[in-house]
């Protein structure tokens, strides 16, 4: 046993087709988590215009909202938040040891519900953007 072969990380993301439901849930939860914490920092930065004066704040927010790109990003943000919330509820149940045998179904349910919420909210989010 002089040498051994380390296959490195090829077996990780190269094998995404073989990932189980719980694994996908983790990947999505992690990804949406990164987006949300990134957004929180940006959010506070934008809202910081309120410390200048009221007019700047109103102007900045309405200026951003008039951009079509921002409206689409907001839909994305909603999808991300909805998934993180729904899968978060699933994870809280897992932590309490409740319904562990249905964890995969709970993940699919979270995905479908997220999709439904996102689609249903598109009109509201894009209202007046065109």
């Amino acid at each position: 046993m002089s040498q051994s072969y380390d296959r490195g990380l090829i077996e990780d993301f190269g094998r995404w087709q073989e990932f189980s439901a719980g694994m996908w849930a983790w990947i999505f939860h992690k990804f949406t988590g990164w987006v949300l914490i990134g957004y929180l920092f940006t959010h506070i930065a934008v809202l910081s215009t309120a410390t200048v004066d009221g007019a700047t704040y109103t102007q900045t927010l309405q200026g951003l909202e008039s951009l079509l790109l921002v409206r689409f990003l907001e839909v994305g943000l909603l999808a991300v938040a909805a998934f993180h919330i729904l899968n978060g509820i699933r994870l809280l149940f897992v932590d309490l040891g409740v319904g562990l045998e249905a964890q995969d179904k709970a993940f699919y349910a979270a995905l479908i519900t997220t999709a439904a919420i996102t689609v249903a909210s598109i009109p509201t989010f894009l209202m007046g953007a065109f």
Binding site: S20, G22, W26, V94, G97, L100, Q103
Partner: peptide
């Protein structure tokens, strides 16, 4: 709690449940 271990355990041990 990715449940990967529980899915593959050949002896059907509820590993995630035990860790939790």
């Amino acid at each position: 709690t990715q449940f990967s271990c529980t899915v593959v355990c050949p002896k059907d041990i509820p590993l995630t449940e035990h860790i939790q």
